[in-house]
Amino acid sequence: MKPAKLFGRIAFYALVVAIVVFAVFPFYYAILTSVKSGQAMFEISYWPKSFDLANYIAVFREQPFALNLMNSIVVAVAVVAISLFLGVTAAYALGRINFRGRGVLLLTVLAVSMFPQVAVLSGMFELIRFFGIYNSLPGLVLSNLILTLPFTVWVLTTFMRELPKELEEAAFVDGATPWIVVRRVFLPLMWPALVTTGLLAFIAAWNEFLFALTFTLSNEMRTVPVAIALITGASQHELPWGNIMAASVIVTLPLVVLVLIFQRKIVSGLTAGAVKG
């Protein structure tokens, strides 16, 4: 190999290593911190020296963290289920049937995904109080739908439109109703798209912070992001960093595993939502 080419190779791999270290190091360091305890917490180390699960036990003992995890799971699963149900039915109408006003409706749905969350905050507050679901999980499910519904409808519509036209025609000739066509013909074909959009909706609901912070009051009703943000120590200047890092690792690990498993699907879902949009 010529020296210039060798130098190019080395520079390229140095860049690759730099990218990987920059991307992964903060999470690595969070794990490293979470298994330290006592005085070791305040001695900076780059490699693991001790292993102690005290922080993980403390997180569950010092606050209702198990309950917070449960809340996050319930809210995210409910949001995904509702979004997918409403998304599939709407996507059938928007993707497979020609009717006047379809373009305007699609643009409206897209416009909602541009809404800043604070723009609906006071109106949503009033709505949640009106329904009597302030400081409760249904209130969070309701408000989270504004984040997940638009892109669910959008991505599923794009997917449905690309399925061959002959699919439903045979079924209609046999006298099937639209509802049966959606359930028997389309649903079985849509699993890849449902997994992708469901996963993206789950992540959006799992990470949501502003609504969860504003529409809950008590420790027992909080979701995980709010619980982590509000972990405090004896005084304002003594944050229990070990507990915070342990909690952070607990909520992040499932997401990282999910994302690594569904890597390709997520990438295609993101690009379908953005590039084609």
Partner: peptide
Amino acid sequence: VRAAVLIPWAIPTIVSAKMWGWM
């Protein structure tokens, strides 16, 4: 490398804020 690059995207914003706050 592609998988590693996706990790920051998968981490909740609140968690990244806390992780970097500590760093």
